[in-house]
């Protein structure tokens, strides 16, 4: 990754490191680079930096490189790293925090499809109280521009009774909507 001044990076980004530690509740400085997380990570082969390297870069304050990485969007939250971490760091939780920080910092390019998926998913939950798969797929395909994604499964799913053409709306929709709105206010700092 070329030359990099580590002490300057840490000095400039110490508040970011502290924020990740606070938000995730995980003391990433406990990591001693055994790399068990990277060894077991099913997505590591497709990442630009394996999880253990992300942990080190984070401890060194390399904010931009971490938040612009592909790694945080490949992580599928399987929790193998968290399960195996000998230093008791919930690495999967740290990845959640990093995705949220990346969005806040505007580094969304590599997470484009993941963010579109999450928005479409949560959009249906906010409206109806439950996930509406057909609505999710349509909204997701429209936002990614890949209109035919999974279209071949649509008809078989309908015929097998595995997809519903209309959403189920729960009675407590307003309660669910309130949860979405209030959490947004509380986190909107």
């Amino acid at each position: 990754m070329g030359e990099f001044n580590l002490s300057q990076a840490l000095k400039a980004n110490r508040s970011f490191v502290d924020k990740v530690i606070e938000e995730s509740g995980q003391d990433i400085r406990q990591c001693y680079q055994c790399a068990k997380c990277s060894g077991g990570c099913p997505g590591a082969y497709a990442m630009d930096y394996p999880p253990s390297q992300i942990m080190r870069m984070l401890a060194l304050g390399m904010k931009d490189k971490v938040l612009k990485s592909r790694t945080i969007w490949v992580c599928m939250g399987c929790n193998t790293c968290t399960t195996r971490c000998i230093r008791n760091i919930d690495i999967a939780r740290v990845m959640d925090t990093l995705r949220q920080e990346a969005v806040k910092a505007g580094y969304t390019e590599k997470g484009r499809t993941v963010i579109a998926f999450n928005d479409a998913f949560l959009g249906t939950v906010k409206s109806y109280g439950r996930l509406f798969e057909a609505g999710l797929l349509i909204k997701f395909n429209l936002s990614t521009g890949n209109l035919m994604k999974d279209a071949q499964f649509g008809l078989p799913m309908l015929l097998k009774g595995k997809a519903k053409p209309f959403p189920h709306k729960i009675k407590g929709r307003s309660e669910v909507k309130k949860i979405f709105e209030k959490t947004k206010q509380m986190e909107g700092n």
């Binding site: 938000e23 599928m76 939250g77 959640d96 925090t97 995705r99 949220q100 993941v114 998926f117 999450n118 998913f121 949560l122 939950v125 109280g129 439950r130 996930l131 729960i170 009675k171 407590g172 309660e175 669910v176 949860i179 979405f180 959490t183 947004k184 509380m186 986190e187």
Partner: peptide, 20 residues
């Protein structure tokens, strides 16, 4: 009258939402 648990989309997006 249960609602969706939010699944991975919620915990990737907002921790408090993923709990609530």
């Amino acid at each position: 009258d249960w609602n969706c648990c939010g699944a991975s989309s919620a915990h990737m997006t907002d921790h408090l939402l993923a709990l609530a």
